[in-house]
């Protein structure tokens, strides 16, 4: 079953979108999706790490001995996470503060290690890059969607990334703060999974 580069890219966007289909990497999905902006920021940071680590793992796949491969992957991933951490600290400091310990925690996000082990260690550089990009953007979209839903219901406004807040619900709306609190995250994600299950999965 040889897939083209384009197919490797698009599968991450719908058919295998990580948080919903595979239920992987849930911690950041639940924790940082209080607002659209946080969700998208986290998603893009993860995408960067995914693409970078996928490319490097794929390039080194014939050099790394298979016995110590997991340790090598973790070091590669941790390197890219450190790069992201420093970049965000330099250029998007407010977002860096909001995401807090969840940026270093990208290291232990199962999606990143999962793609390195399941895909990049067996495929060429171009395909691995496409796979990382697709998975990362799929992850970003899911985070953004969940963030937007929680923010609109929970506060009545929507914060566009790096812009300003737009009131969605009008003045008479009383914010349902449950959604931006911890339990709301679990319930919102559970109900979204349910909606995803209602839509048949395309082959």
């Amino acid at each position: 079953m040889a897939k083209t580069v384009v197919q490797e890219f698009t599968k991450g966007l719908w058919a295998e979108v990580a948080p919903f289909r595979l239920v992987l990497g849930l911690c950041p999905v639940l924790a940082v999706t209080k607002t659209l902006e946080n969700g998208v920021g986290m998603g893009l940071a993860t995408t960067f790490v995914l693409v970078g680590s996928n490319i490097l793992v794929s390039m080194l796949r014939n050099v790394i001995p298979s016995k110590v491969r997991i340790a090598c992957f973790i070091v590669i991933i941790a390197t890219f996470v450190t790069v992201v951490e420093l970049l965000m600290q330099a250029f998007t400091y407010p977002l860096f503060l909001k995401l807090g310990i969840f940026i270093p925690l990208i290291v232990v996000n199962c999606i990143v290690l999962g793609r390195a082990e399941a895909f990049a260690s067996k495929n060429g550089v171009a395909k691995s890059c496409a796979d990382g990009l697709g998975m990362g953007l799929g992850f970003t979209l899911s985070l953004g969607l969940l963030g937007a839903v929680r923010e609109i219901i929970g506060t009545g406004t929507l914060s566009l990334p790096f812009l300003y807040n737009i009131p969605i619900m009008g003045d008479g709306y009383r914010p349902f703060t449950f959604m931006v609190e911890a339990p709301g995250a679990f319930v919102a994600l559970g109900l979204m999974l349910c909606l995803m299950n209602l839509i048949p999965k395309k082959a």
Binding site: F186, C194, N197
Partner: peptide, 14 residues
């Protein structure tokens, strides 16, 4: 559609 993880998450929320 709610089975397995989905209901699990809602329960975790409660």
């Amino acid at each position: 559609p709610l089975q397995d993880t989905s209901i699990g998450l809602v329960t975790a929320g409660l």
